[in-house]
Design a protein around this nucleic acid. Structure first.
Lengths: 246, 246
DNA sequence: CTCGCCCATATGTGTAGACATGAGCGCGGC
DNA sequence: GCCGCGCTCATGTCTACACATATGGGCGAG
């Protein structure tokens, strides 16, 4: 912190690692090294930067992990061909999302039932027929105004504690996040028109467009929970960013 | 590990790296080490696995990069509190997306203009006032039925070739993907009601819910292109998957 | 009892060297 | 001319060591 003004340049890399990495990344991202280009051998880079091979190796390893470079034994390391546009979609906890917007988060439990999974919820929720589930319906509020309505199923076979939790104060998403480790999740994003009930809960007109986020969370092969969150179309949008830097 | 049946375990890790990594990952993902838990010191792991500290260090470094672990000097390394659910959203080219559904892809250019960026498009599109742009409006069809309508701006300062391309046969997305390298993209997903023109183009009722995908693509600090794709709410949804193994 | 300095310690970074692995390519044999 | 064996070289993995750096906690001074 000795320095005065750093302008907005976010502190240029100081360690050898970072300098080399930034250098190589720059060459790739600027297009100076096009996809398919063979980058210098580790041996050459080691001479060029005056460091040990291990250091170069570690840097290139990082670039491989970041999906920028591919390595082939005996042949060398090559700049990779970007194949699909993939973006990291960050799906935060609703309470922190709303807090981040500078609004007051509110939560209300609309209904809670213990029942057995059957019929319609099976296909989309991934629940197993005959399995005990907690069924919740709750409302998320921002500055007192309805923000999203959430329908959730929690599999009791995987999370038996959920049967005895009172969700009237804690949102099920937050509770699960803190209590149950998960290994995979699947999201589906769609747009649909608010039905009569959703319209009433969200305080919008029937038929108004809503953003619908469905999420199934797994642990190993078991479905832990299924959630369907319906957002007012005029009040929310998801943002995803992608940059090869990670 | 001399055990008999491996069940479905796909080729257990062979190098020390991979064994240690798989071990630690397993402990974290299974929940044996909960968020906040301090994992053994590098020194301890080095003794436990009978290897050099560099090796352990590299593994933990990888777990940090994967977002599973946080390191604090003097204090140790800790299992991270999953704060946000981040998912990888794969945004394929529309033609391949439709082909993957087994439908025939169709494309129609509705309008094409060369003009100067100004007024309303500036804020959301990231275009610079006074900059020349190509403005396109086109339709994507699946099995002959309207699937999505796309409004696109392409910055001529960055992609001058775009001025002389006839987009009546090639969708701008595909063309850009193959001709212009990009370094970052930003997506916004929302739901909105179809206006009169969109309703006509998509052959749906005015006010029907649509999924709206806005995308800005950058190269360094420059905006290359801005696209706004409007999907029939009843015909499309985005799918994203996440698994911590990456 | 409280505040602040100092040090032990765990991670961060880097070196020099060693052996393993596997693919490209030339050379020799057929 | 063609095929395959084996050499070579670049990456892959790992070790043992060394010094840098930040910080938590203990200890001593006030």
């Amino acid at each position: 912190m000795s320095v005065s003004a750093k302008s907005m340049a976010p502190a240029e890399p100081v360690t050898l690692h970072q300098r080399i990495r930034a250098d190589l990344e720059g060459k790739i991202l600027s297009g100076e090294w096009k996809p398919g280009h063979r980058i210098p051998f580790e041996h050459e880079l080691m001479v060029q930067y005056g460091c040990a091979r291990m250091t170069v190796n570690k840097v290139i390893g990082g670039l491989v992990a970041a999906g920028l470079i591919e390595r082939r034994r005996r042949a060398g390391s090559f700049v990779i061909q970007p194949r699909i546009q993939s973006a990291v979609l960050e799906i935060p906890d609703l309470s922190s999302e709303i807090a981040a917007r500078g609004e007051a988060y509110g939560y209300r439990l609309l209904s809670r039932r213990l029942r057995v999974a059957a019929g319609t919820d099976l296909a989309e929720s991934g629940m197993i027929a005959g399995e005990g589930v907690v069924e919740l319906r709750c409302l998320h509020l921002a500055d007192g105004r309805p923000f999203a309505v959430e329908d959730r199923l929690i599999a009791l076979a995987v999370v038996p504690e959920a049967a005895s939790v009172d969700f009237s104060q804690t949102a099920p998403g937050s509770w699960l996040l803190g209590h149950v480790p998960w290994t995979a999740a699947e999201h589906r994003i769609s747009a649909l028109a608010a039905g009569a009930r959703e319209a009433r809960d969200l305080d919008i007109a029937k038929g108004a467009p809503c953003l619908c986020l469905e999420r199934r969370t797994f642990r190993a092969e078991q479905t832990i929970t299924y959630a369907r969150q319906l957002f007012r179309g005029d009040a929310y949008n998801l943002v995803a960013r992608f940059s090869p830097k990670g």
